[in-house]
């Protein structure tokens, strides 16, 4: 069953174009020029119940605008949109009780109070019976291991701890759909991993449909079975995440540190040297050659070595180019 359906969904923003300098500012007092920007352009989307979907794309691609339309925060300029059978921008309470949204940079928590205080408020706002509230709260507290933090002032928590509390607050009413906009932004590797594990469990155990936007490859690869790539407001890929990376993620970045100076040319059988100093080499290699290059590096006894995936932006760019060429 589809929980989300959009057809030719479009959002156009009108932006004030200010001229430079003081004279421009003065002129702006009586004459203003506006330009229109298509933030989301004719997007067709169908999401089934229980799916874990990644929305990816560079900054300004239209991911957040799409989430804002799906949650009813903003109204579409044109097109059809239906979420759980509702037109989101009607902002009906019965619709809002069925989803939750966590925006990495917009906190729902009261910083002066404890997380318990905010959860108590959410319990009342969503009309959760006391017994269910206690049971669910306990489930999430144990899942996250945050028992000791529940009575601390939120402002004293770290970014990772705060995000865990945001997620608990969002999931307390057992939403059918969870929208996550950059939930791991600014988090360290450990906190990000914990959050990912938690989200995976919620999706599998509770069957919550999750729509996630992220700039981090790791988030998308670990969590999302399906991926929607957006660029310049348009959908340019919609399919299995594995297939996307198989087809478009062509290379890996290897960083190697050496105690002794090393000549980097011997590693460059089929790659691109991004940084070449006597003690540090950063090489971009085709993914099928990764093993071969790593072997060559290991022969030089590196003191440290790391292998990174290509950034989402590069992958998106490649999909975009691929589409323009065909």
């Amino acid at each position: 069953m589809n929980v989300i359906e959009t057809e030719n969904l479009t959002k156009t923003y009108k932006r004030y174009k200010k001229r430079e300098g003081i004279i421009g500012s003065i002129q702006g007092l009586w004459k203003r020029e506006y330009e229109e920007k298509n933030a989301v352009n004719s997007v067709n989307l169908k999401i089934e119940e229980g799916e874990f979907i990644g929305l990816i794309g560079p900054n300004g691609a239209g991911k957040t605008t799409l989430i804002k339309m799906l949650t009813g925060i903003i109204a579409p300029t044109s097109g059809r949109i239906e979420v759980l059978g509702y037109y989101p921008n009607d902002l009906k309470n019965e619709f809002k009780e069925k989803y939750a949204v966590v925006m990495g940079q917009k906190s729902q928590l009261f910083f002066e109070l404890t997380a318990n205080d905010t959860l108590r408020l959410f319990k009342e706002i969503y009309g959760i019976p006391e017994a269910e509230y206690q049971e669910r709260k306990q489930y999430f507290i144990e899942l996250f291991g945050v028992e000791k933090l529940m009575n601390m002032q939120v402002r004293t928590l770290s970014l990772g701890e705060r995000m865990k509390m945001e997620l608990i607050a969002a999931l307390l009413h057992n939403p059918q759909i969870l929208f996550l906009d950059e939930p791991t932004i600014g988090l360290d590797a450990i906190a990000s991993r914990q959050i990912r594990g938690f989200l995976k469990q919620v999706n599998q155990e509770k069957g919550t449909t999750i729509i996630l936007t992220s700039h981090y490859m790791e988030d998308i690869k670990t969590l999302c079975g399906r991926c929607v790539v957006i660029n310049h407001g348009s959908k340019i890929y919609d399919g299995r995440t594995e297939a996307l990376f198989e087809k478009y993620q062509n290379s890996k970045k290897i960083t190697a540190i050496f105690e002794q100076p090393v000549d980097g040319s011997r590693f460059l059988t089929d790659g691109l040297m991004l940084e070449d100093t006597p003690h540090k080499k950063v090489i971009s290699v085709p993914k099928e050659k990764t093993y071969q290059v790593l072997q060559a590096i290991m022969e030089e006894n590196p003191s440290d070595i790391s292998v990174e995936e290509e950034e989402i932006g590069t992958v998106v760019e490649r999909i975009y180019k691929g589409r323009s060429e065909t």
């Binding site: 009261f110 002066e112 109070l113 205080d117 905010t118 319990k123 009342e124 706002i125 009309g127």
Partner: peptide, 19 residues
């Protein structure tokens, strides 16, 4: 109604947070 009472209680608590 209870949701609005809890909103009021929450803001009362925020007022008391700063001595």
């Amino acid at each position: 109604m209870s949701k609005y009472i809890e909103v009021g209680r929450t803001y009362l608590k925020t007022q008391l947070a700063w001595r």
